[in-house]
């Protein structure tokens, strides 16, 4: 199945030609969890990424569905 992923902070810059408006189409196995998607994108756990699926903040063990819209925000620390 496929999910659409949008990346924020500097995460998008890790992917050549990343398009801010379109995001990425990512192929994941049926029933994959958010954690597996992050691993596929090489976003490690210690980056404190925040993930929303279809507009709601979710934990990494949440199962994904075909055509989910996944936003990944990079950890930023207040100054």
């Amino acid at each position: 199945m496929r999910v659409r992923v949008k990346l924020f902070g500097l995460l998008g810059r890790r992917f050549p030609d990343y398009d801010l408006e379109k995001g990425l189409e990512v192929e994941v196995p049926e029933g994959a969890r958010i954690g597996e998607l992050l691993a596929r994108l090489e976003i490690s756990n210690n980056e404190d990424a925040v993930v929303t699926v279809n507009g709601l903040v979710q934990k990494t063990d949440r199962t994904l569905k075909h055509r989910d819209l996944v936003y990944i925000f990079q950890s930023v620390v207040g100054g």
Partner: peptide, 22 residues
């Protein structure tokens, strides 16, 4: 520090728009 060393320089304070909306 990632925020002061990289993120703010690349995206400015406006980097906050996305997570605060989320």
């Amino acid at each position: 520090q990632p925020f002061s060393g990289r993120v703010l320089g690349a995206l400015g304070t406006a980097v906050l728009v996305a997570p605060v909306n989320a």
